[in-house]
């Protein structure tokens, strides 16, 4: 049973949040993980999620928004089911990261921070994801794909299209 009545989250996530606020010396430490996990479930951090998380932590909505807007992985608008994040920072750039990004744009027919009409994919150019030695790299949701070539990208995207991609959460 969730400590919040009428929770907007799934019973599992609500239970997880119930637990999360109890493990830290200070409740508020759960804020950033909660926002990210809420986004994982809903697809973005909705206003309702902001309000419920504020209640769970015991702070006001504004404070949640202040924090939410600081972190680049958190978004307040829905993205595709699979968010393709192509790194173009220096190590990836030197090994063709922009070419990969271009390829994704053409293949998916969408630009930076756009979502395909069917909602399957969204695309994002991101800063260094810590895969420099295996560049160029990208993440689909939380899953890493490295040593990319346009051909490899096609294979990866097809896996997701076919529902066979990994979906780490």
């Amino acid at each position: 049973m969730s400590t919040v009545t009428n929770t907007i989250f799934s019973p599992e996530l609500a239970a997880r949040f119930d637990h999360l606020v109890t493990i830290y010396p200070v409740k508020r430490s759960a804020l950033v993980p909660m926002l990210l996990y809420a986004q994982d479930e809903i697809g973005y951090v909705s206003d309702a999620a902001v309000s419920e998380i504020a209640v769970r932590i015991g702070i006001n909505d504004l404070e949640v928004r202040n924090v939410l807007s600081y972190y680049s992985m958190l978004r307040t608008k829905p993205a595709g089911k699979y968010n393709v994040q192509v790194c173009t920072n220096i190590s990836c750039m030197l090994r063709g990261g922009y070419g990969i990004l271009d390829h994704c744009k053409k293949t998916l027919g969408i630009g930076h921070k756009e979502t395909t009409a069917d909602g399957t994919f969204s695309l994002e150019e991101v800063e260094c994801i810590g895969a420099c030695c295996w560049a160029p790299a990208m993440q689909v949701n939380y899953d890493f794909h490295d040593g990319l070539t346009p051909e490899k990208v096609d294979v990866v995207l097809q896996q997701y299209r076919d529902g066979q991609g990994k979906d780490v959460k």
Partner: peptide, 12 residues
């Protein structure tokens, strides 16, 4: 060039 002008819209 590694970046084309059209590409100057993303993350950084």
């Amino acid at each position: 060039p590694l970046i084309t002008v059209e590409q100057l819209v993303g993350a950084g």
